[in-house]
Simulated assay, not measured.
Amino acid sequence: MKHHQSDQLQILAKINQDYPHQIMPRGERLRRWVELLERDPQRVLSTLRQTEHQPNAARALLRSDNSAISVAFGDPVLRAAGMENDTYGEARRFFGLSDRHLHSIICYCHFGATVSAGATANYLRAKHVDRKERFWARVRAVFVG
Rank of each mutant, 00 (worst) to 15 (best):
I106V: 15
D86N: 15
G89F: 05
H110A: 01
G112W: 13
F111H: 15
R93S: 11
T114D: 02
S70P: 09
R79H: 05
P76I: 01
T87C: 11
R49H: 13
I69A: 04
P55D: 14
F95M: 04
M83G: 13
A113C: 06
N85P: 01
H103A: 06
R59F: 00
C109K: 00
Q54T: 01
E84A: 10
S67F: 07
E90T: 05
D75P: 09
S64T: 08
S67N: 12
E84V: 00
V71I: 15
A91G: 09
H101C: 09
H110P: 01
S104W: 00
S98G: 10
A60N: 15
L102P: 02
R79M: 07
F94S: 04
F73C: 04
N85F: 01
G89H: 07
A60H: 13
M83E: 10
R63C: 09
T51Q: 05
H110F: 08
G112A: 11
L61T: 14
N85Q: 09
D86T: 05
N85G: 09
S104H: 08
F95T: 00
R79E: 03
A91E: 01
L61W: 07
A60I: 08
P76Q: 14
G112D: 11
D65K: 15
D75T: 12
G96A: 08
T114R: 11
G74L: 10
G82D: 01
